[in-house]
Design a protein around this nucleic acid. Structure first.
Lengths: 105, 105
DNA sequence: CCGAATCCGAATGGATACTG
DNA sequence: CAGTATCCATTCGGATTCGG
């Protein structure tokens, strides 16, 4: 089933957020670290690497400023725009229904 | 932003799968346990409870057979159909691109 | 049958220090 | 700056047992 495949690639806490952050163009590692609330450097690195392996993002080193690394969506990554859009729309409309999560205790 | 809200409600490993499993009508706890591959009873209970709190599903006890508990999507839960549909479609189309995940080592 | 409680190992993830 | 490595606390989650 397709849902499972999609979740395998897009699942986890951060991938959707990362894609959303990259929707409007390339960003540097440090920009992503600042823009995405709550993510740590270690986790950001790992997520980006996974997404690179799965062809969602492209990593490139600036040839003018050294030490600057940019990430951008591939064409494949951009094919998730429709998903992000639907998610955003739904989340926007239904915001007031959120209560809380159960905390296992 | 709406994406964050949506992920807060639908995030985690199982919620999307649970919604997909309930798309075509109510199911019993034991049916879900069997149908959803890899989930344990403990985790299934917790996920269902969270979804109940957030109004995605409705829990009801059969009045004919006792000890039978059914879960079904609420109207609100059904409003996620469009999300599931887009995810399924995308996952279906892009299946061959999957490679693997990075394992932190 | 449904699910809560307990036990316990595995995986996750933050903080920090370090390297090129 | 962009990561990697290490340490460690927290969380997750499976297996089992127990109760309504």
């Amino acid at each position: 089933m397709g849902v499972h495949d999609a979740m395998y690639i897009l699942g986890g806490k951060w991938k959707i957020h990362l894609i959303a952050a990259l929707l409007f163009g390339p960003k540097r590692y440090s920009d992503l670290l600042r823009d995405i609330n709550g993510i740590s450097g270690k986790v950001l690195s790992r997520e980006l690497k996974e997404m690179e392996i799965n062809q969602l993002v492209k990593r490139s080193v600036s040839n003018t400023q050294s030490n600057a690394v940019f990430y951008e969506l591939t064409e494949y990554g951009e094919s998730t725009k429709s998903i992000i859009a639907v998610l955003a729309e739904w989340g926007e409309a239904q915001r007031e229904v959120i209560v809380h999560k159960n905390n296992d205790k």
